[in-house]
Design a protein around this nucleic acid. Structure first.
Lengths: 160, 160
DNA sequence: CGTCCCGCTTACGTCAACGTCAAGGCATAA
DNA sequence: TTATGCCTTGACGTTGACGTAAGCGGGACG
């Protein structure tokens, strides 16, 4: 099935991409409005290519790390216009470097936040095990959590 | 000076905190509106304690990692009600664990985004060095960047 | 044949996180 | 005294990223 998806001539409907990546048709059309996607058309209907799908993956990940659609568009544009407008590109270069700095700090922040949440969890578990051990999560719940985590990564696995 | 800041009885005006953390008074009042901060008052004026300042640090970092003010409030609430409502805390525990999973994925996303931005930068630099080497950043600019980065971390150094 | 279900477009609504006035209080400086 | 400056509380405006509803066209199903 992963092989199916990888076949370059393969195309997708809007709904297929939406269900695959848990987006909405409205969102994809919005991205198109903003120039981040330009799917082909079959009559009126949008037809997304394998490349469009790859762009969508980049868009969604960009969003998750806090990039604006505007910034994401700049990155995407860089990918398909190998050339032209060297002046603008100098500007892009500066902005990208700045963004990298921001993201690196963001990663530090996330590490810190994870640490603190872990500490908070430990405190909570200790508190609960003393006062209300009945409310502590059971082995079954933990199992459930692991499965959820894997589900969350399913699209990433398909994406590479 | 760091010792000054650490003295627990030390208080802060709204503007002091704003300049220290590059926020605006409007933002701090907004956080108060939403229940994330509850500074004391001297007449009409807000008086922020050392603890308020610590909360603000958590708020700002929470924002940087993409938490909503709502979520940040939940975390903060957990910090000062060490007790009571064990049932609710069991719920908090679950939410925190989920949030940790989200953050871990987010860190992966950030690593990927940094990689891509770096690649994009390399391509841009190569492109520029061939066509418009005059537009390439100079050593002075790099110096400037490093200074900016250090400034950005000054508050963190004071904060810990 | 009607009626779902998709899909399309256009247009207005919404929500978070503030920004931006407006109108005024209190204090210090000229 | 007036002026300057920081603080206050509303109240309304803004921006980004969509949601939602209205209205139409086209296959598929019963």
């Amino acid at each position: 099935m992963a092989l199916e998806l990888r076949r370059p001539e393969r195309t997708f409907t809007i709904r297929q991409l939406c269900t695959e990546f848990k987006a909405t048709p409205r969102a994809l059309r919005f991205y198109e409005d903003k120039g981040l996607l330009t799917p082909a058309r079959d009559g009126m209907n949008r037809v997304y290519s394998y490349k469009d799908r790859a762009r969508l993956i980049l868009i969604l990940r960009g969003k998750r790390v806090g990039l604006s659609l505007q910034e994401i568009r700049e990155i995407l544009e860089l990918y398909d216009e190998g050339d032209e407008a060297a002046h603008q590109n100098a500007h892009s270069l500066k902005k990208f470097r700045e963004k990298i700095v921001v993201l690196e700090r963001q990663r530090e922040d996330i590490d810190g936040a994870i640490q603190e949440l872990n500490q908070a969890c430990e405190r909570l578990e200790k508190h609960l095990s003393e006062k209300r051990p009945d409310l502590l999560p059971k082995a079954a719940d933990y199992d459930q959590m692991l499965r959820a985590r894997l589900d969350g990564h399913a699209d990433l696995a398909l994406a590479k």
